[in-house]
Design a protein around this nucleic acid. Sequence first.
DNA 1: TCATTGATTTGCT
DNA 2: GCAAATCAATGAT
Length: 196
Amino acid sequence: MRAAFARPLPGRFYDRPTTEVAVDLLGRMLIRRVPGGFSFARIVETEAYTSGDRANHADRGPTLRNRMMFGPPGTLYVYRIHQVHCMNAVTGHGTAVLLRSAEPGIGLASDPRGPGRLCRALGVGPAENGTSLADGPVRITGAPPPGLVVDRGPRVGISRDVERPFRFAIRGDPWVSSPRPRSRGRARAQRSFAQS
DNA sequence: TCATTGATTTGCT
DNA sequence: GCAAATCAATGAT
């Protein structure tokens, strides 16, 4: 994992349309540096929060909570909801991808299925808010497998703009959180970004 | 300053 | 399947 941690996706990976990044993050490795080593998980489910999107925390402009969403692409945005934390990859001014679920890798503290559980499993909290996914303590690396099939559907747990199909998940993956997105509306994973 | 709400999880029916 | 937990950020007063 040390070598992989040293070759994270660069900031420009995230400087693209948010839905495109959300799909392209599926199947990649989320790596957490911890004292004396690393822990990691494979991303299997994401959601896009775009501009002009009333479900987006940043839709009404910068606030104390969402200010990290206005940092550069590749910034990690961590927020608290109820009693847990959730993490996002910032893609532009006030847009981000919520990392919803992952398959366990090595070194996890607990089950990473679900956005709150994912943060808990990787030990991600307020201390990591605003750090860089390109050179911070939490990074994303690797490439999705060829031919990955992606399901899409409405996002989970929101009350505004509920109909937008901005939730993406690896078809058939047992670590996708419930309820699963519908199997129709399939979309092939985009491989437009070539990692250096 | 006050009331409302929530990008969730958990446990109980 | 449904509701409680539980509290800070947010928006209204």
